[in-house]
């Protein structure tokens, strides 16, 4: 079971890097004669209203979701971890101010925060990724701070100071390596969360422009054919679920 989640992630990464290895169909230009066909050997996920192969669109769309998620996690991880480390190792008023700011960020639900960023920056794939990343800064900062504080209280950190270690040396040798594990696990989890959030924003129409095959947008377009063509929404959604589930599993494993 363990390898399954790694396999899913590896497969999706390959989709993003070398999509042509997995599908011969054009994701943008369809064959109108073959429109709205159900799943078959020729079209695994069926075809959409203008005769495009849905599987090809999902494969070619993975690059948008993955790169977006990478940017989002990068923003959250870097900003959040730095703020958390600073708060946890400096302590005092700096700690107080940073963590109260994080409280404010945390008091606004992720999606609303992302929408606020989008209304300021405007829609678009990169802005959506940044918006989602900003939403996870507080979570990373809190975790990183908690870990640093926990590790700093441990006897081995005091012992390191006791044997003549300087602040920077102790931070680098003991505090950082021992507090980063859970942060990395959170990054894996946030990767799944980011894919979810990006597809949600795509669904609401703030991400990529049609006809880009972004996953959320793909599902949104399928809504008009709910009564007749279930595969347009169900199958791409199932792919999203599989990837997010896999990221969650991997996060648990790392922890």
């Amino acid at each position: 079971m363990r390898w399954l989640s790694w396999l899913v992630v590896a497969l999706v990464v390959l989709w993003a890097v070398v999509p042509w290895l997995f599908t011969g169909y054009d994701p943008l230009n369809g064959v109108p004669a073959e429109k709205l066909q159900g799943p078959s050997a020729a079209h695994w996920f069926g075809t959409d209203a203008v005769g495009r192969d849905v599987f090809a669109r999902v494969v070619h769309g993975s690059v948008h979701s993955l790169s977006g998620a990478f940017v989002a996690v990068g923003v959250g991880l870097v900003l959040g971890t730095l703020l958390g480390l600073l708060a946890g190792s400096a302590g005092g008023p700096a700690d107080e101010i940073i963590m109260r700011l994080m409280d404010v960020l945390l008091s606004v639900p992720g999606l609303l925060l992302a929408l606020t960023v989008i209304i300021l920056l405007g829609p678009g794939t990169v802005n959506v990724a940044i918006a989602v990343g900003v939403g996870s800064v507080a979570a990373f900062a809190r975790l990183a701070r908690a870990e640093v504080v926990r590790v700093r209280r441990s006897d081995y950190v005091e012992a390191a100071f006791g044997s003549g270690g300087t602040f920077v040396a102790v931070l680098w040798r003991h505090v950082l390596p021992n507090s980063l594990g859970p942060v990395v696990a959170l990054a894996a989890l946030q990767f799944g969360v980011a894919i979810l959030a990006i597809s949600t924003l795509g669904f609401l129409g703030y991400g990529a422009e049609p006809p880009t095959p972004e996953w959320g947008l793909l599902i949104s377009e399928g809504r008009n054919y709910l009564a007749t063509s279930w595969w347009l929404t169900t199958l791409p959604g199932a792919v999203v679920v599989a990837v997010v589930l896999a990221a969650g599993r991997i996060s648990k494993e790392i922890r």
Binding site: S199, T200, F203, R223, L226, T233, V244, L245, G248
Partner: peptide
């Protein structure tokens, strides 16, 4: 719960409409 948390809400809504309504 891990499954529940991995499901996009908009997709779940669409799925429910599809199954229960259509």
């Amino acid at each position: 719960p891990s499954l529940f948390i991995s499901v996009p809400a908009f997709w779940l809504g669409i799925l429910l409409i599809q199954v229960f309504s259509f």
